[in-house]
C-alpha cells in the first residue's frame, strides 16, 4: 500500500516535470499551429547551459533557471523574427515550410551544443536528499522541480486567461485573421509566443538536467516526448496536456517499478504510437470533419 502511494506521488511529480518540458511546445503550437522540431534541442541547450553555470560559477539549477530561460527567450525571438516570420506562405504550404525550417534548426542547435559541450552525458548533482512525508519518501530535487513546473504552468495559464497580452495571444491562437482585424499586432504576438515557448524549454532544461542526465543527442527524444504529451492532450489544449503529463508520469513510474527501466524508456513511444493510431485528436480533442 505504501509502495503504491509512493509510486503515485512520484508519478504525479514526474508528470509535473514532463508538463514543464512540453508546455512551451504547446504554447507555440497553440498560437502558430506549428511544431517546433528544435524544442528538445532547446531543452538540452538550456540544461547544458545550467551545467556550465554550475561547474564554473557554482550556480544552482534554480538560479540558472531564469538565465537559461532568458537566453532561450532571446534565441527564440531571433529565430521567429529572422526565420519563421520570413515564411509568407499561408495554409498547408506555410506550415510545411515552417516545419522544414525547424527541422533544419534542430540540427543547427544540436550540433552547436555538441561543439560547445561535446557528446558526454552531463548532469548536476543538486538536492540529492529526500523529504519524508509520513511514510512516503520523495527526492528533494524532484519535488522542487515539480513544484516549480506547476508554478510556471499556473503562471502561464493565468497570464493567458487573465491579462490583456495573454488574451491577445489566445485570440491569435483561435483566429489570426480575426485578431489582426481587431487591431492586434499578430507579428509581435507570434514572436512573443515563440520566444516564451523557447524560454520555457530552456528553463525546463535547466531544472531537469538535475534529474535526468542530458547529452546533445537527447534533443530528438525530448521533442518526441513533448509532442506525444501535447498530442495526447489535444494539440494546443492546456488542461489536456496537464492530464496527459500526469498519465505519462504515472505510467512511467509504475512501469519502471514493475518492469524495469528498459520498459520504462519505451513507454513514451508506446503511448506515441497509441495516440497516432487511436486518438490523433487527443484525449480531450474533437474529431475534425471535411
Amino acid at each position: 500500500m505504501i509502495t503504491f502511494a509512493t509510486l503515485c506521488v512520484l508519478g504525479l511529480l514526474w508528470g509535473g516535470v514532463y508538463l514543464l518540458m512540453a508546455e512551451g511546445l504547446n504554447l507555440i503550437y497553440g498560437v502558430m499551429k506549428v511544431v517546433n522540431l528544435a524544442h528538445g534541442d532547446f531543452i538540452v541547450l538550456g540544461g547544458l547551459l545550467a551545467f556550465s553555470l554550475f561547474e564554473r560559477g557554482g550556480l544552482t539549477p534554480i538560479a540558472a533557471f531564469p538565465i537559461a530561460a532568458g537566453l532561450l527567450f532571446l534565441i527564440g525571438m531571433a529565430v521567429q523574427l529572422g526565420v519563421l516570420e520570413q515564411i509568407t506562405a499561408q495554409g498547408p504550404e506555410g506550415e510545411l515550410r515552417t516545419l522544414l525550417a525547424t527541422f533544419g534548426l534542430s540540427y543547427v542547435v544540436a550540433n552547436a551544443s555538441f561543439l560547445l559541450w561535446g557528446s558526454q552525458f552531463q548532469s548536476i548533482p543538486f538536492l540529492q536528499g529526500a523529504v519524508q512525508a509520513g511514510p512516503i519518501a520523495v527526492p528533494e530535487g524532484l519535488l522542487v522541480c515539480s513544484l516549480l513546473a506547476f508554478g510556471v504552468a499556473l503562471l502561464v495559464h493565468v497570464w493567458l486567461t487573465r491579462t490583456i497580452t495573454g488574451k491577445s495571444v489566445h485570440a491569435t491562437a483561435q483566429s489570426a485573421l480575426g485578431a489582426a482585424s481587431c487591431g492586434l499586432n499578430i507579428r509581435r504576438i507570434r514572436t512573443l509566443a515563440f520566444a516564451l515557448g523557447s524560454a520555457m524549454a530552456g528553463g525546463a532544461g535547466a531544472l531537469v538536467i538535475s534529474l535526468i542526465p542530458f547529452q546533445t543527442s537527447t534533443g530528438g527524444d525530448l521533442t518526441v516526448q513533448a509532442f506525444t504529451l501535447i498530442a495526447l492532450g489535444g494539440l494546443g489544449n492546456y488542461p489536456g496536456a496537464w492530464l496527459a503529463a500526469e498519465l505519462l508520469g504515472l505510467t512511467e513510474v509504475f512501469t519502471q517499478y514493475y518492469l524495469g527501466s528498459n520498459a520504462a524508456s519505451a513507454v513514451v513511444y508506446v503511448v506515441f504510437i497509441g495516440v497516432l493510431i487511436f486518438r490523433p485528436q487527443g484525449l480531450l480533442g474533437r474529431v475534425g470533419r471535411v
Binding site: 515552417t98 525550417a101 533544419g104 540540427y107 543547427v108 544540436a110 550540433n111
Partner: peptide, 13 residues
Amino acid sequence: QIVLGALTMGIAV
C-alpha cells in the same frame, strides 16, 4: 551539420 541545417532553414524560407 550546422551548415547543412542552416542551409535547410534558408532554403525552406
